[in-house]
């Protein structure tokens, strides 16, 4: 069954989009990741304009993270003060990101920048995942315990504007969470990802926040930032396609349920290696598209400002 997407302005197969949402949802349930960094490239491969893929991806993440955020809130795992600082940074980052997209669109470079951003991030993340899971597999064979450097102080503690975050049991500068939030806002606006893969490790390893608080607080921030990016992209770029978003949401939530169930029976390291492999495959595909001489050297776009 074909459906015409009003904003992407192409006709797509409903079941193909469902399946895509379902597959990414399944993976995100399986691996406990957001999945936005797989969803956007897949949408681009199907022929959805990259700007629409990014903005619609942000919209879809609101749906996929709202329940988790609420559950964490009820369990008291959200540090509201820290979350608010992150969010302030996130809002500034979103504004900058959306305006950046708008400008890049007018000069005809947005597709390239989105691809480059993906190749870089997917390459780094996929590579790290592969390395870590390979190391983990080797360690489990040799049965050597993993010891982390437990020093409580790092350069972060030398920064000014210190604030007390009771829930996280922290007394640190407001600058790192502010900048972290800003970075996430930029990524959501430019790439249509939740940014969990940046914010979670940064909060754990850099800010040394307890893991349960990290999960709750980052979800809290992601819901709000993706919501704001959705509204900003709608206002500045008119690139949010609600019909596409709804199809992805339905596929995504169903897929995620199955993913969670299957994930409980699989071993962590193998799964992380698998995810790392997939991330690298998507990265490679995008890289090839950038490097190989295209069949058509010319491209045509509408003049911004007169965009219908």
């Amino acid at each position: 069954m074909q459906v015409y997407l009003p904003i992407a302005e192409i006709s797509v197969n409903v079941f193909a989009i469902f399946a895509m949402g379902g597959a990414v949802g399944f993976l995100s349930g399986l691996f406990g990741v957001g999945g936005g960094f797989l969803m956007t490239p897949l949408l681009i491969f199907t022929g959805i304009p990259p700007t629409v893929a990014v903005a619609t991806g942000a919209n879809q993440i609101v749906a996929s993270s709202i329940s988790g955020a609420l559950a964490q809130w009820k369990r008291g795992n959200v540090d509201v003060k820290l979350g608010t600082v992150l969010l302030i940074g996130g809002i500034v980052g979103s504004f900058i990101g959306v305006e950046l997209v708008r400008w890049l669109r007018s000069v005809g470079q947005i597709d390239l920048i989105i691809s480059l951003a993906y190749v870089t991030f997917l390459g780094v993340i996929g590579g790290l995942m592969m390395l870590e899971s390979l190391n983990a597999m080797r360690r489990s064979k040799l049965d050597i315990g993993h010891k982390r450097n437990k020093s409580r102080h790092n350069w972060i503690h030398g920064l000014p504007f210190k604030m007390r975050f009771h829930r996280s049991k922290l007394f640190i500068s407001a600058l790192p969470p502010l900048i972290l939030g800003l970075l996430v806002g930029l990524l959501v606006a430019l790439m249509g990802v939740g940014g969990g893969f940046i914010i979670v490790p940064a909060m754990i390893y850099l800010l040394r926040i307890p893991t349960n608080i990290v999960v709750g607080t980052s979800l809290f921030q992601i819901v709000f930032v993706t919501a704001i990016v959705t509204i900003l992209h709608s206002t500045s770029n008119q690139t949010v396609d609600v019909v596409l978003a709804l199809l992805l949401m339905i596929g995504g939530v169903i897929g995620a349920q199955f993913g969670v169930r299957v994930g409980q029976h699989l071993r962590g390291e193998h799964m992380r290696a698998l995810l790392g492999f997939m991330v690298l495959a998507v990265c490679l595909r995008m890289l090839v598209d950038l490097i190989v001489e295209p069949d058509e050297l010319y491209s045509v776009s509408q003049m911004l400002g007169s965009l219908k």
Binding site: V62, L246, M249, I250, I254
Partner: peptide, 20 residues
């Protein structure tokens, strides 16, 4: 466009909560 964006967010919230 602004209200459309708000509508898209509300739709996502409803979809997410309903599914759960």
């Amino acid at each position: 466009p602004f209200f459309y964006g708000v509508f898209a967010v509300i739709l996502a919230v409803i979809a997410g909560l309903t599914a759960t």
